[in-house]
Design a protein around this nucleic acid. Structure first.
Length: 219
DNA sequence: ATCCCGAGGG
DNA sequence: CCCTCTGGAT
C-alpha cells in the first residue's frame, strides 16, 4: 500500500502533516531557557546530544556567573567545564563556547551576529544551531532546524530519502512554506519525544499514521 | 568514519 | 549491558 498514492503530491502530504502537527501541539515554544541572544546561542551549543531539560538544569548557574559574552570570554575554561559537565561533551562545549564568545566580543560588540554566514564561522556552530538562534533570537527564517528528531521523523514520514542533515534540510525547505520552517521543527521534535521515539515508536497512538509510510512496519 | 562525553531508560 | 538525547569538528 502506497501512502503517497492517496495524496496528490509529497508536498501536499507535507502540508497535511504540518496542519496535523499544529492541531496536535497548538503551543510549541522553544524549550531552552535563556534571557538574551548570547544565552540562547550558548544554550543551543550545550544542547548537542543532550536534552533541553538537562541544559536548563545547568544554565541558571552558568549564566548566573557568566551572564554575557564578555564574562564567558574571560572565564577560566575549567570553571565553564565544571558548570556544564552534566551536559556531556563538556570539554569541547566549553572550548567552543569560550572561543565563540571571544569572537562575539572581538568582532560583534559582544552580540550575536544576525546572519547564517556569520554564525557558521563560530566554533561549535553549524546549521542546526544557527537556525535555532536566527529563528528565535531574530525571527529570521534561514532554514529548517534538522536535529536528531527532525532527521528521524522526516525519514520515517517519507519527506526525504536522505540521511544527512544538509540534504534533509534542503528537501524540507522545498516542501514547506518558509514561515513554517521553525515551528515545523519544534513540533516534529515534540512529536519525536512523545510518540515517534527512536526506539519504540508508538504508531498506534500516532495521529499521523495514515500519512506515514513507516507506520506499524517496524519490528 | 570517528571522536567527544554524561545521564537516563530499557 | 546498549541505545538515545534539539551536533560539530577532524
Amino acid at each position: 500500500m502506497n501512502i503517497t498514492r492517496k495524496w496528490a503530491s509529497k508536498k501536499q502530504r507535507a502540508l497535511e502533516i504540518l496542519v496535523r502537527l499544529k492541531r496536535l501541539y497548538p503551543n510549541a515554544p522553544c524549550t531552552l531557557n535563556y534571557a538574551t541572544p548570547v544565552q540562547l546561542l550558548v544554550a543551543t551549543i550545550l544542547s548537542a546530544q543532550c536534552t533541553d531539560e538537562r541544559v536548563n538544569l545547568v544554565t541558571p548557574a552558568l549564566f548566573g556567573q557568566f551572564p554575557d559574552a564578555e564574562a564567558l570570554a574571560k572565564a577560566e575554561p575549567v570553571e565553564i567545564e565544571n558548570l556544564i559537565r552534566s551536559t556531556g561533551f563538556y570539554r569541547n562545549k566549553a572550548k567552543n563556547i569560550q572561543a565563540a564568545c571571544r569572537i562575539l566580543v572581538a568582532e560583534y560588540g559582544g552580540k550575536v551576529p544576525p546572519s547564517m554566514e556569520q554564525l557558521l564561522r563560530l566554533p561549535g556552530v553549524a546549521r542546526k544551531t544557527a537556525n535555532v538562534v536566527l529563528a528565535h533570537a531574530f525571527g529570521i527564517n534561514a532554514g529548517v532546524t534538522v536535529d536528531t528528531h527532525v532527521k528521524r521523523l522526516s525519514y520515517r514520514l517519507g519527506l526525504t530519502k536522505n540521511t544527512d542533515p544538509i540534504h534533509i534540510e534542503r528537501d524540507l525547505i522545498r516542501l514547506l512554506p518558509s514561515d513554517d520552517w521553525e515551528n515545523f521543527s519544534i513540533r516534529i521534535i515534540y512529536h519525536g519525544r512523545a510518540i515517534c521515539k527512536a526506539r519504540n515508536p508508538a504508531c498506534e497512538a500516532c495521529l499521523l499514521s495514515d500519512l506515514c509510510p513507516s507506520a506499524n512496519v517496524r519490528e
